[in-house]
Structures are given as structure tokens and as C-alpha cells.
Design a protein around this nucleic acid. Structure first.
Lengths: 160, 160
DNA sequence: CAAACAGGTCACGAGGTCAG
DNA sequence: CTGACCTCGTGACCTGTTTG
């Protein structure tokens, strides 16, 4: 399975929805990131929220998308196209339900001497302690240096 | 599918945690590599960091793992399952007798508040001036870049 | 020395965010 | 509203150590 994923990610393919050329995989269906994001947003809406003014005949392709064309995109048809290529609400899964754990470690580290206001260049506020962090690079490799944007949300969610 | 794992053994077995078919042994408990890695990551956390939103009733099996299902895995239950099959922090052993693992050092330092600039245990290179890691950015950036490149190519193709 | 296996690494794709 | 860019957890692969 993993090998299969790696192979697919090295070759381009066309988004099943809009036809844009893409590298990488999104969901099990070959979609570009914009279409994946689009579907993620609209699958949460009640059914039939979106209406097409042209009886569902709109041509959904890369050139008709939001930033690609002066022609306004039809969200109803784009969403319908997503459904027609087997996207469904199960394709959009919630974030893992348990605690993002490294935040805990970071929180402890924040209170140690290494991380203080003087030694840490600041661009973002972390919490009410007013510690600031530089924008991290890849979080997966920086457990000590985790981005803290969601810390308060995480705390509310898990630490009450 | 998971029989593709490289580790050799005389016979396959099922991972004690997730049930995936595996060759080879990891630790003294028969675990697949993903579950071993999972436990290695999470065993350094403070107790009760992970919380299950379903009262610990999640079914941890191969089909519920991250890349295998649209259902997000519950880390709390997966970790609990690891513990229930007798994994413990001693299962995460030092790489050698002379070099304690990064995780263990961190854990001790965290608990003893000895973490300071002189005792940073990470094997990763840190520029103490900027406190920036030297590794490249997330791969998702690459994917996005590739997507953009290809999208513009596609756009050119359609709009010529 | 080769095999097994330990922890470390990082590409990947998931959902989230927010400037435009 | 969109989509480029972000953080995040995962697991296949890497590299070095231990073992027979």
C-alpha cells in the first residue's frame, strides 16, 4: 500500500474533479488540493444547500475555478462532480480524537530555561505567558519546537 | 498486504496490538513496526495525556490504522492496547549501553527540570542564535509547489 | 561477518487557517 | 469563498548497535 502511494506521488495525474494536473494523493480519489478543500468545506452543509442556476450543466475544469478564470465557478456543479467521482462524507475524516501529545511536552519545555523571551525570536504568541516563537518549519521533526497555534484549543479540548 | 514488511522470520504472526500480519519480532512482544513506532513515540508522554472520546471502547485493529481507513485511529486506545499487551517504557531500550536514546533523556530531563542550554540532548542540530532547525521545510510545500507548477502548465495548455 | 533489530528520520497526506 | 500554506501523526526506510 505504501509503496503504491509513493509510486503514485512521483507521477502526475489529473484531478478527477477539475482536471488540473497534480502530484501526490488526496484521499483515495485522485483529487487536487483545492478540490479536496472545497469538498471538505461543503460536505458539512445540509443536502441541497447548493443550487445550480444552469440546471447542473456547468463545466467544472481547472480553467473555471475561482482564481483561474473570470467565469465564476458553480459550486453546486463542482460539489456534484465531487460526489460523482465517489467522494463522500466519509472521505473527510475528523482529526484524531485524542490529544496532540507533543504539545504537552512543549508546554513543559516552554517553562525551562532554554526557551525564554530573550533567546526566542518572536513572531507568534503562544499563550497567556506571552512567549513568542519563530514560525516552525516541519513540525514532524521538531518536537521541541512545536508550533503552538492550537495550544489553547487543545487545552480546552483535552485538559479540562 | 502487511506481509511486505522486510523483517524476516520463520513464520508470520499477527500484531498483538492491531492485528496486522507481520514477519519478524519487535521487542519481546510481537508487534508490527508501525505499532512499535507508535509506542516509542507516545511512551515518553506524561501519564493520561491521551484521552479517548469514546470511553476507551475503540477497536484497534489493522483496518483502523492511519493509512488504512477513513476512520481516524484513536491514539488513546491504541496506546492502552500497547500497555495491555505488556509493552512498557522499558520496552523502549537504549540504542546502546553508552548512548541513551533521545526520548529517554528528554523524559528524565523533563521530569527533573534539568533541561537547559547546556544539556540539550537532541541529536538534531540547533542554531542557538536563531533557534532554527536546519532541516528543509515540510514536504507538503513541495507538493504544493509541484501542484502549482503543473497547474500553470495545465492552464497554459487550456488557454492557448 | 551477517542478520536482526534498536531508535532516528522524514516524505506523505490528513485537516486547519486566513490573506486576498 | 478560495486555495496556498500551515501543523500534525504516521509508518516506511535509514543508520548504527547488538548478537550469534
Amino acid at each position: 500500500m505504501w509503496q503504491e502511494q509513493k509510486q503514485m506521488s512521483t507521477s502526475p495525474f489529473d484531478c478527477a474533479v477539475c482536471g488540473a494536473g497534480v502530484y501526490g494523493n488526496n484521499s483515495d480519489i485522485r483529487m487536487c488540493l483545492p478540490c479536496k478543500s472545497f469538498f471538505r468545506r461543503y460536505t458539512l452543509l445540509p443536502a441541497n444547500t447548493l443550487k445550480c442556476s444552469r440546471n447542473g450543466t456547468c463545466d467544472i475544469e481547472a480553467t473555471r475555478r475561482y482564481f483561474s478564470s473570470s467565469v465564476p465557478p458553480c459550486r453546486a456543479c463542482r460539489f456534484h462532480k465531487c460526489l460523482s467521482v465517489s467522494m463522500n462524507e466519509n472521505s473527510v475524516r475528523p482529526r484524531s480524537s485524542s490529544t496532540p501529545p507533543f504539545n504537552m511536552v512543549d508546554k513543559v519545555l516552554l517553562k525551562t530555561s532554554l526557551f525564554n523571551e530573550k533567546s526566542v525570536p518572536s513572531t507568534k504568541q503562544i499563550d497567556n505567558e506571552n512567549l513568542m516563537f519563530t514560525r516552525p518549519r516541519c513540525s514532524s521533526d521538531v518536537s521541541v519546537w512545536q508550533h503552538q497555534t492550537d495550544l489553547s484549543k487543545t487545552r480546552d479540548y483535552f485538559m479540562n
